[in-house]
Design a protein around this nucleic acid. Sequence first.
RNA 1: GGAGAGGUGACCGAGUUGGCUUAAGGUGCACGCCUGCUAAGCGUGUGUGGGGGCAACUUCACCGAGGGUUCGAAUCCCUCCCUCUCCGCCA
Length: 420
Amino acid sequence: MLDVRFIRDNAALVKEAVHNKNEKADIDRILELDAQKRKLQFDYDTKRAEQNRVSKQVPILKKQGLDASGLIAEMQKIAAEVKAIGQTLGEITAQLDAALLVVPNVPHPSVPIGRDESDNELVHEWGEKRKFDFVPKDHLALADGKLLDFKRPAKLTGSGFAGYTGVGALLERALINFMLDFHVQKHGYNEISLPYIVSRTTMTGTGQLPKLEDDMYHISEDDLFLIPTAEVPVTNYYANEILKNDQIPQKFVAYSPCFRREAGSYGKDTKGLQRLHQFNKVEMVRFSEPDVSYDVLEEMVRDAEDLLQALELHYRVVTLATGDLSFASAKTYDLEVWAPGTGRYLEVSSVSNFEAFQARRANIRYRDANDKVSYVHTLNGSGLATPRTFIALIETWQNADGSISIPEALRPYLYGMEQI
RNA sequence: GGAGAGGUGACCGAGUUGGCUUAAGGUGCACGCCUGCUAAGCGUGUGUGGGGGCAACUUCACCGAGGGUUCGAAUCCCUCCCUCUCCGCCA
């Protein structure tokens, strides 16, 4: 959520941001509601002050044994006026708040302006596409029925759910443990494990709601949601708090399953592990002081890159253009890993700076050097999403005989196996 | 799921026959005084958010959340949420 005062002072900029993000939000209406609200607030305060002042005289009169009924009768009128103004004020405030919730974050000036992902900008690449002296298989040909099972999970639940079996399950677990250990031991993150089911308020705090409700799994009986990413519980961990010195800066890393309905993406990237309704992910979440949050963003990209480098996988980093940027993000880098069998780059990490957008929604603040209370900046990034990393890993490290070599960094997590 | 207790400022903790409480008192914290140093002591200050004002300042709201009663609500009524204890169920 943006500060209404920021919108008031930068209406043109915000309108441009809404347009560049292919979003819809009625900024003029917000400005109008804001003006109405402030006027009502002034009227309310003035009346209420009078009411408070006069009400205090009632007990004084009574104590002197005087009749206060005239004063009380007069105050009944004012009380009714206060109530009426207060009601209108409440309605306008509710409308304004609802309107503010659907205004997207403003992209950082360094973000390329563009309609969609074709306008994303390449930042850099690492490694190169592996050359094969045989025709590399895609991950389905390599692993379906062995390391992976798609058929039976579909029987259990439906399409878009995958099973990892035997050594495949071990490999997936190895990836998760490897990534967690790496972030904790080499990058200094604090591991955290939080609920996978959260409330409507929590989902609103990070910006999934109200806009993306159709993409979320909802438990209607309790009005709770399955998390689409660990970002949601971890970022909201400090909701409604003023952080103390030892809580900011803060770097958390969390493993969690992620649940996404993927409404509207049917038929897109449906092959194998590429797009699932449930998958595992290790997520980095940072709480930063505003003046350094863009340094933190760069650091997080490197933290995610370190994993791919340790796994010796070729990848590239791109800056998302405005049209591809998510609702809440001010700037996002995607890490795309090369999957030689599939013949595509797959997004395995999305690293974003939300600036104060989520902090304002979730009400996460801190005291700066001058003891002034202000909103923190929140950032998060995958490090990494498991299924696509799994794809790239087995497709890159496959051998002509169908076996898969294990990169050295991962071997300790696979009982020392060099190949599977 | 059943029964009971409770949710007050950074923290502890009064206040629940509605009105000198602008939330007592304490702790902590900050500044000052005192002081050989430290401690103790003394004094002052110490929340968040909104509105108005160039500013000093002023005003409103907030005692779990939301409604209601009243001239006036931390205090009374209703609904909901959360925490704790006991019972039941259970990995």
